[in-house]
Design a protein around this nucleic acid. Structure first.
Lengths: 147, 147
DNA sequence: GCGAGTTAGTTCGATAGCGAATTATCTGGT
DNA sequence: ACCAGATAATTCGCTATCGAACTAACTCGC
């Protein structure tokens, strides 16, 4: 029973895996030194909704494990890009907020990535991304909900 | 919550990143102990075209770096799942072939993963995967060609 | 043939991610 | 009021991956 003919779903996941890695490499190479893809993702999330978020909420939003988020936040905090404070209402929680330096780093990262993103936009039509996005979002939500 | 300001391509890459990680976790949890997702991918590749392949060809096919492939092959060889021999025609090259144990591990892995894959197939129509696959393959090829 | 450049593979150090276990804090039932 | 269970974050050990640098082997122009 060698999978002589790959089914579409298997090919899909193989393709997603490859795209994710290639895109992550592209992103990391484009970002300013000292800013990782993981850190940039967190900064972007905080920039989109500037209300301080808990590490758990960030991990859930980015679909990462809690230890991964702890690690990324420790690096960002060490660089002074986020401020992590105790939640006054719940001693277990922490609140993560962008510092001015973090907001600047997010803008600088976005600017550094823009040329590379424009290359992709030149090669592929935005409507192509829009066309596949709903399915990907449904699939991502389903995978997150069925661990 | 509202990523309304995000463009479709940015949301697309964020979504792909999340799906890849969630799917990889699902895969690794389903696989028999001792078989990693990376190793399983290599075994599958070798099972599809049973002609021995070079490490570089495998790395290119799976869009991995050479060191990553070296590492995965060293583990598989240590487990006796692949046989790595020198290429008689070119002293730089090696040839990687499935051992009988490797072929059995590939079949066992596929069988272990099937129930989980069937869950996905129950929740999503095969035509949905087929619909997005051509675009993903074009994008993957473009990313691989524009480093 | 022979030396410069190319190609295949490995080694090394660093990083992001996971799961399991730990600690600290909150919550609810009695 | 209290203890049992749930929840937030962290720590620890492990693996997959990358980039850079290295070695060995091939190829080609002269």
């Amino acid at each position: 029973m060698p999978p002589s003919r790959e089914r579409a779903d298997i090919a899909f996941f193989a393709c997603v895996s490859a795209i994710e890695r290639l895109a992550a490499q592209r992103l990391e190479r484009a970002l300013p030194a000292g800013l990782s893809g993981a850190g940039f993702a967190v900064l972007n999330r905080l920039a989109i909704s500037p209300d301080p978020a808990s590490p758990l909420a960030l991990a859930a939003a980015l679909k990462l494990s809690k230890p991964a988020m702890t690690h990324t936040l420790q690096r960002l905090e060490g660089q002074g890009l986020v401020a992590v404070t105790a939640d006054p209402d719940d001693g277990r929680r922490k609140r993560v907020a962008l510092t001015p330096a973090g907001a600047a780093a997010q803008r600088a990262g976005a600017a550094a990535v823009r040329p590379r993103l424009d290359e992709v936009r030149a090669a592929f039509n935005p409507s192509e991304f829009e066309a596949v996005l709903p399915f990907l979002e449904r699939l991502g939500a389903w995978l997150a909900a069925h661990p």
